[in-house]
């Protein structure tokens, strides 16, 4: 299982990744599945399940304009966690 923090802007996603990195949370830039990308062509940070709670708090506290956060299970099914 992993989480996807979805951003509309590549630059926002990059800045968020740097913020997480400074806090010791590794993330990986991916293109989210087209089904969860409302307006098309979003950018997501993939993070491990165990890092989710800390990462979500950091992102919210820093005021990053993310689009949504999804939990993705082992079968690849994505469920929105927070909007």
């Amino acid at each position: 299982m992993h989480y996807l923090i979805v951003f509309r802007s590549l630059t926002y996603a990059q800045r968020a990744a740097k913020t997480l990195e400074r806090a010791g949370i590794l993330s990986y830039m991916v293109r989210p599945p087209i089904e969860i990308s409302e307006k098309g062509c979003s950018h997501a940070l993939k993070i491990r399940a165990e890092s989710y709670a800390k990462a979500a708090k950091l992102i919210r506290d820093a005021g990053f304009a993310y689009e949504a956060i999804y939990r993705v299970d082992g079968a690849g099914k994505a469920e929105e966690v927070i909007r």
């Binding site: 307006k39 098309g40 062509c41």
Partner: peptide, 12 residues
């Protein structure tokens, strides 16, 4: 490279 389904330029 963002918001491709939107027919206008992104606001951000």
């Amino acid at each position: 490279g963002s918001n491709s389904l939107d027919e206008f330029m992104p606001s951000f």
